[in-house]
Every structure is written in structure tokens, then in C-alpha cells.
Design a binder for these strands. Structure first.
Length: 427
RNA sequence: GGCGCAUUCGUCUAGAGGCCUAGGACACCGCCCUCUCACGGCGGCGGCACGGGUUCGAAUCCCGUAUGCGCCUCCA
């Protein structure tokens, strides 16, 4: 039988990364099995906020590459069916009216259990199961009724969801049995927590897909990292492409204990992905990122900087501060420049005539300068870097100067020299 | 409070009774490379929550304790 899974977020806000991880597991499982992955929105009203959240959810899934099969379905659209089923259960005596609402009659004896793919066998004594409300007095079905019915309607074969649903499962199982439909397989995957062991929230850092995207993470890196939260392929494989994840994923290897989201590891992984990109792909990601940031820096120059920054930054959002000097004027800290006047003037004098004015030519010229002034390269280049890039941290100095061009370089060196003063006159 | 689930280095994890002197990765520390920052290389620190069993043998099985989380809504 072909596999069919679903992700069923409620449109109450932006897609939380924990739900995204669960969505990813569903998607990986479906793709691995050659089955279907569906998107169902558990909406209970049709307000404008809901419509916006629905778009948001779809954008997030699409950006991550989690494509779904078939149309997006809405819980609200199938209320009628749920109501019919509730009435039917009342007619056959498996449910009863209680002050206007309808409750499902849970069995009193025996137990209800299932073989959870992740947790193993779980059995719950039926006496602990309350007669749950399946239809509210206003006629709307409740979650514990609508959700399993829709799963049945959609032909869901595997319900892969968060652990907060474990105690709902026996109730849903009883309802499904009363309805006489096929039972799905359940897999309750563990939570993703913040570093304090609690639910991941804003104060831990980015929590929605949008936020990760805005911080310059690559979709493939995020997906890779998320996949490793609660699942692993073996004892040594960390970096896996989307294709490899699909090929290797299995529910059997999903662990039972909750994971803590490790931002530092994501940064490292993102760097790995960023460095692996070819120049064109990197440029595309970078240009797209800057555009979303609202930075209208010259695209062709941005593209030229790729070789200078690719190995240096782990997140795209590090780019602006790292390469700003190529697009905007700089203001080196005068105190840090103090006493470097001689070096700066000499650098200006030599670079005025250095040929060719490319990274190699500039490097040869500046190294000679350092040697002749009796300075270590480190010492000699520090003030030059500061004068030219405005920072003590920058891409390679010589490549940066080449890109900046002779004219702007000389101007910055002169301006810095004027503010720097001579070593003996430093105050 | 009741019920449920979980518990291996700081973090993600490997481990399905002997392969474990518990492996890998991130982080951290040190050294090397080096024009800064990164990258890369080498090395180091560091863990089976606790207590009882079972067994010739337990990180692995059982029981209990502790801790964390979840559910106990006419929320989803």
C-alpha cells in the first residue's frame, strides 16, 4: 500500500521551527517511500489573519523545498461530514448528547494501545479515557474528532506528529474504530527545545522559517540541521544533501528523546553549505538575500566580491558589515590609526604607481614597503586595512584594494594618514 | 495531583548484552598555517542521571527514585 502522510498546522501564527522539523520528517518519509505528503490547515475560522498565516505557512514550506501533493485542504471545509458522523454515532448509541454538545462514549474496560514506530508499544487503560466532546454545542467538531476523521478521509497511512499528541492517540483510536475505518500507523517524534530545555521561543533566537531566512541561512543547511534533530543516519554522517536525506531517512532511526536546537552547529553547517556553492550559485543567493534586506548595492560589484567573502562568512547576514567598505565610504577609528601616519603615507605613495594594480601587484608593493620599513607584514598591514576597509576585520587586503580601485584606495589612505599623525607626535 | 513520554560528553548523536579503554560532529582549549577574519591541519578537555536487581558479563534488559517535558479545554 502506498504511503500517505500529512502536516496539519493550525494557522495561528508563523510556522514554528519545531513544527517545521515535524513537517520535514513527514516529507522525508513520504519522498523516501514514494508516497504522498499533504498539507492540511486546521483552521476554525476564515479571518484575514488566518488567510495571511496560511500564505505564510506555504511560503515557508516552499522555501525549504517541502513540496506537498494535491490541494491544500482545510478542516473547516469538512465540518459537515464530521457533523454527520457525530449524528450517526449518536444513533447507534456510541455517542450521546450532553447539554447540547455530543460526547463520544469511551469503552470502560480493557485498554487501547498501539505500536508507535518511535516509542514502541503504548497501552492505556480505557477507564482513564474520558468521554470526549466530539461536537460542541455550537455544532462545530472538536480537534480530537475532526483530525482523525480527516486523516481517514485523506487516506493517511502514517500519522507523524509531535509528542503532545500521545495522550490524544488512544481517544482518536477509539473514535476511528467506532467509525469503522482503517487505522493509521502512529509515530510520535520528539520535541525540539531551546537550550533551557523548554519550548523553543523567540528569546532563544530565530524560531520561524522567515527568521532563519532573514539571518542568511540556506534552506538546504537548515533542512540538514533539522533532519539531525531526533534522527541520524549512522555514527558519523552529518552533512547530507536533500537527496541523500530522502534516500536515507527512515522512521525506525528516529530517536525518542527531545533535542535542543544548537544554533552554533547550524552556523557551522551553513558555512559548509555556503562554501560548497559554486560561484554563480553563491552570487545568486547573496544577491537575493541583499535584495530582501532592502540593500540596493551594485549587483555586478556584489558578484565580484564572491571570491573574497565565500570562505569567510558562515551566514549571509554577515556580508553587509564585512563588505560595506566597497559600497560606502568608511570612517576608520582615529585612535586606532594613531601613530600610523608614516606607514599610510608611504603606502599611498607606492600604490600611486604600483603596476599592475591588481591583488598580486598590490601585494608585492606592500610587502616591499613592510620590509623596507622594517615592519612585520602583520604590523604594517593593520593600519592599511583599517584605512581602506574601515575595520580590523576584512576580506583579503590585496584583493579588497584591487576591487576598490586605485583612486578610492589612495583617497582613503590619504584621509587616514591626515588623521593618524606621526609616531613621535602621537598624543 | 493523575496519566504518559524521556534521560549517553556543554549541544546533536552512534550504541539494539560481550566489538565500549563508550565512537563521530558542533562548541570550547592549545599548537600549526596566516595580512585581519575565516578556512584547513594536528592535538586536548569532556558523558552512560542515581539506586537496586537479572546475567559469567549491562550504556544496552527489569524495578524504583530523581529530574525534565507533555496531556488531563465544548484549544489545536
Amino acid at each position: 500500500m502506498s504511503v500517505c502522510v500529512r502536516i496539519a498546522p493550525s494557522p495561528t501564527g508563523l510556522l514554528h521551527i519545531g513544527n517545521v522539523r515535524t513537517a520535514l520528517f513527514n516529507w522525508l518519509f513520504a519522498r523516501h517511500e514514494g508516497g504522498e505528503f499533504r498539507l492540511r490547515i486546521e483552521n476554525t475560522d476564515t479571518s484575514r489573519e488566518v488567510a495571511a498565516a496560511v500564505d505564510q505557512i506555504q511560503d515557508s514550506l516552499r522555501w525549504l523545498g517541502l513540496d506537498w501533493d494535491g490541494p491544500v485542504t482545510f478542516q473547516l471545509d469538512r465540518q459537515g461530514h464530521c457533523v454527520d458522523e457525530a449524528r450517526r454515532l449518536v444513533e447507534v448509541g456510541m455517542a450521546y448528547e450532553d447539554e447540547g454538545a455530543i460526547r463520544f462514549r469511551m469503552p470502560d474496560e480493557g485498554s487501547t494501545g498501539w505500536d508507535d514506530v518511535v516509542l514502541g508499544r503504548i497501552d492505556v487503560p480505557n477507564e482513564e479515557l474520558e468521554d470526549v466532546v466530539i461536537l460542541r454545542s455550537d455544532g462545530r467538531p472538536t480537534y480530537n474528532f475532526a483530525s482523525p476523521i480527516e486523516d481517514a478521509l485523506d487516506g493517511i497511512t502514517h500519522v507523524i506528529r509531535g509528542p503532545d499528541h500521545i495522550s490524544n492517540t488512544p481517544k482518536q483510536l477509539c473514535i476511528l474504530r467506532a467509525l469503522g475505518v482503517d487505522l493509521p500507523v502512529y509515530a510520535h517524534v520528539p520535541n525540539v527545545n531551546g537550550d533551557d530545555g523548554r519550548k523553543l521561543s523567540k528569546r532563544h533566537g530565530a524560531v520561524t522559517v522567515d527568521e532563519f531566512r532573514a539571518e542568511g541561512y540556506l534552506a538546504a543547511a537548515l533542512a540538514n540541521h533539522l533532519a539531525l534533530l531526533g534522527w541520524s543516519y549512522d555514527d558519523r554522517t552529518t552533512v547530507m544533501s536533500r537527496e541523500e536525506l530522502v534516500e536515507r531517512f527512515s522512521l525506525e532511526r528516529v530517536g525518542a528523546s527531545p533535542a535542543t536546537f544548537d544554533y552554533a552547529k547550524l552556523d557551522w553547517l551553513n558555512g559548509v553549505y555556503l562554501r560548497a556553492l559554486d560561484r554563480e550559485a553563491y552570487a545568486r543567493e547573496l544577491v537575493g538575500f541583499l535584495r530582501e534586506r532592502g540593500l540596493d548595492w551594485d549587483e555586478s560589484l556584489v558578484r565580484e566580491t564572491v571570491p573574497l567573502v565565500q570562505e569567510k562568512i558562515a551566514r549571509l547576514d554577515e556580508y553587509p558589515s564585512f563588505a560595506r567598505f566597497l559600497f560606502e565610504e568608511v570612517e576608520p577609528d582615529a585612535v586606532a590609526l594613531n601613530g600610523a601616519g608614516a606607514v599610510l603615507e608611504e603606502a599611498e605613495r607606492r600604490l600611486a604607481t604600483a603596476e599592475p594594480f591588481d591583488a598580486g601587484g598590490v601585494e608585492a608593493s606592500l610587502r616591499r614597503l613592510a620590509e623596507e620599513l622594517g615592519l612585520s607584514p602583520r604590523k604594517a598591514f593593520a593600519p592599511i586595512r583599517l584605512a581602506v576597509t574601515g575595520s580590523t576585520i576584512s576580506p583579503g587586503l590585496f584583493e579588497s584594494i584591487e576591487l576598490l580601485g586605485r583612486e578610492r584606495t589612495l583617497r582613503r589612505l590619504a584621509a587616514a594618514a591626515a588623521r593618524a599623525g606621526r609616531p613621535e607626535s602621537s598624543a
